[in-house]
Structures are given as structure tokens and as C-alpha cells.
Computed example of a mutant assay.
Amino acid sequence: MHHKEVHALSATPELTSGERKPMLNTISPAMLLEEFSLEMTGKDVPGLEEAADLIPPSTRINVTFLGNENLETRLATSRAVHERGFTPVPHISARRLASRGQLEEFLGALRDQGTSSEVFVVGGDPHTPEGPYEDSLQVIQTGLLQAYGVHQVGIGGYPEGHPDISDAQLWSALTGKAAALREQGLEGTIITQFGFDLAPVFSWIERVRDLGIDLPIRIGVPGPAGIKRLLTFAARFGISSSAGIAKKYGFSLTNLLGTAGPDKFITQLTDGYDADRYGDLKLHFYTFGGLRATSEWITSFSEDQK
């Protein structure tokens, strides 16, 4: 469900900063929630059925590329998202692709069922690539994405770093991918790993903008879920969850039986937002507690802001 990734290692020059569109310097929680995106796996299709009435039409829903799912499962999940009036964003896991032919097979099948317009390209979990692609940058550079109808490409961002990749490598990869998307005429979006602490998120966004990368950024947010479950995923992906951070987020490490939602996180994000410094921000929800629970929370929180 998450984008652990081994990125390009070569040094990449900083991008030239372009003119940004003038924006208001403040934003409300309701405005931040506009055009949110969600994430699901193949096994979540029944949950999508249950949540469909709560999700706005055309909402982007990322479809993960799990190693234990086959081509048909991935295609069927993207098709289910499309048939219910939402925008599927299938993941492509570079290191899980056995060959260029397998990449073309997946892209061709997505195109044939009308679900290839947007994709999210990630390096993937395997330590050793199963084929010719070391990272997502190499997939972008093939030129195959646009050849099969892709217009927008999502790439990963790591405000708290990555447990297996150095910060220098992460920044080199991010600038390299942003440059490659621009060179190939593809629209791009950065989707960040989730977290509980806003301080590294704001610092990371400032660095992204200082590098001249003006792609829209979707801040990864965990939907409401059991605290134990949240902490399990946090440990797996190297996310800080100290007692102080947990309290600031809205849960306690001494009481793990309840659930926690991102109410405080989103409110603090809007309070600290400055368009001149941070640019275009939206939210991406990791649905740890299920699509229905996340969608119900978004609906209720949005109503409370009116």
C-alpha cells in the first residue's frame, strides 16, 4: 500500500524555478480536503462498493501493485474504480517488472480498458530487481508511459526519509524524476509517505520548492484506524511516533486500544499553510481502517468545517 522505493543514485542538477501562479496565502481545512485522493488494494473492492456513495465523483483512487496479486487482479481493481465513476491511478512497481514486455503488457491492458490516463510509479520492495528496472526513474525514461496513454504520473516523496535509502539518494531521485517528467511532457504529482509529525513535512516541502520543483504535492495522511495498526505501519516505514508526536497527533502510546483520526494533523497543516512557501497542496489518504471508515470520516470532518 505504501511506496517503499529504491531511487536513482546519480547526481541530478537543481531545476530552474519557474513562475508560480498567485495563490491565497491561507487555506481552510475544507479547502484542503477538496479533491482528496485515496488508496486501495485488490482485496478492497468490496470496501469500495460500501464506500462509493460517500466518495465524490472522479476522486483519484490509487491502486497498489502488490507482489501477491496477478495482472488480472490489478486490472480488475482499476476497472472497478473506473466503473464506479472514480479515477483509477494504478501503481507500477519498477523492481517487480520482469521485463520491458511485462511493462508493455500491463500498460496495454490498462489502455484497452480505459484506465491508463494516470499512474503512480514506485521503485518497489524487492532488494534485487526482478527485471531491467532499478527504480521508477528508469520506467519514466522508457517513454512507454505516454505511448500507452498516460498523461499524469505520480511519484513518491519521503518527508521523514526512508529506512533503506540515504537522504542524498532520495533528493537526487526526486529531482531526477521531476526533470524527466518535464522533459517528456508528462504532468506530475508528488505523493508523500504518511506521518504523524508536521515539522518534517513543512521542512521537506520547503526544500522541494527551493529546488525549483513546483509539482503539486499530496500530503500522505492515515485515515482513521486502530492505534496499534497505525504504529505497526509507522514502524515498518520508519515513521516517527514518539510519545510527544503521538500526543500532538491525537493519541497516546499508553492507550493503544482506541482509534485515531487525522483531525489535529489536518487542522495544524492548514494553520501553518503559506501558499508562497508551500505551493499547491492536497491530501492523500492511506485507508488503514478501510475505505468506508475513511470516507465517513472525511464527510463528517468536512461537514464540521462548514
Rank of each mutant, 00 (worst) to 15 (best):
V139M: 04
I140F: 01
G143T: 05
G114Q: 05
E134L: 13
Q141T: 09
S116D: 08
G114N: 06
G114M: 07
E104T: 12
P129K: 03
V119W: 05
E104M: 13
S136P: 05
E134C: 12
F106A: 09
T128F: 08
E104P: 02
E118L: 12
P132L: 11
G124P: 11
G114S: 10
V139F: 07
E130D: 12
D135K: 00
D135H: 15
E105A: 09
S117Y: 00
V121H: 04
L107Y: 08
L107K: 06
G143E: 12
E105H: 10
S116C: 10
L145P: 14
V121G: 07
Q141A: 14
F120H: 12
R111L: 11
V122E: 04
R111V: 02
G124M: 06
A109S: 15
Q146L: 13
T115E: 07
E134Q: 14
L137E: 10
E130K: 14
S116V: 01
L107A: 04
E104F: 02
D112R: 09
Y133W: 14
Y133M: 07
E104Y: 01
E118R: 12
T128R: 13
S116L: 01
H127W: 09
L110A: 03
E105I: 11
T142H: 10
Q113R: 11
L110D: 05
G108S: 09
Q138C: 00
P129H: 08
L107R: 03
V119A: 11
L107F: 09
T115Y: 01
I140W: 03
E104V: 09
G108Y: 07
E105P: 03
S117H: 07
D125G: 12
L107H: 04
